[in-house]
């Protein structure tokens, strides 16, 4: 597993396997998204759609919420009595909405991510710090990388 025997071939095969698994997941695993619901309204009537993965609020009021998605902007109706938290435009949210065959989505649940930008900045700085630590902990030598004593 770790010997020098066929080392380069092992590296190529592992890298290839990673690419194949990622590609397979990308091609074969696909939840229907809201545009699929609109394309086949009878099939998806009453089903819950996930409006997640860091959707950004475009506009919001007490009756409707518009958020961005990779396929375009989606409008979610806020049902009467739904307690919508204070969410300014630009805020990242995840949401669940129920689809109606008439072509509208009604908000069912929502979760805000007010610290997402901070999370990205802090994570980038941390990654940079670890890369620097690695740079000072590893040297290039005969037979590959080597940890410094």
């Amino acid at each position: 597993m770790f010997s020098d025997r066929l080392r380069v071939l092992k590296m190529i095969v592992i890298a290839g396997l990673i690419v194949v698994l990622g590609w397979w997941a990308h091609r074969s695993v696909r939840d229907p998204v809201w545009v699929d619901y609109l394309a086949r309204p009878e099939k998806y009537h009453g089903r819950t759609v996930t409006v997640a993965r860091e959707a950004r609020i475009v506009s919001v009021d007490s009756t409707r919420l518009v958020v961005t998605q990779p396929e375009g902007n989606i409008e979610l109706l806020v049902p009467p009595g739904f307690e919508l938290p204070s969410l300014p435009p630009g805020r990242d949210v995840s949401a669940l909405a129920v689809f109606d065959r008439d072509g509208f989505f009604t908000l069912e649940a929502i979760s805000a991510s007010p610290f997402r930008k901070w999370k990205i900045v802090v994570s980038l700085l941390t990654a940079l710090a670890v890369v620097l630590f690695l740079f000072f902990s590893i040297r290039v030598g005969k037979g590959g990388l080597a940890l410094k004593e």
């Binding site: 770790f2 080392r7 590296m11 990673i18 990388l145």
Partner: peptide, 8 residues
């Protein structure tokens, strides 16, 4: 994969 970049 990463470990294979290191010395044996």
């Amino acid at each position: 994969l990463i470990s294979l970049f290191f010395r044996a």
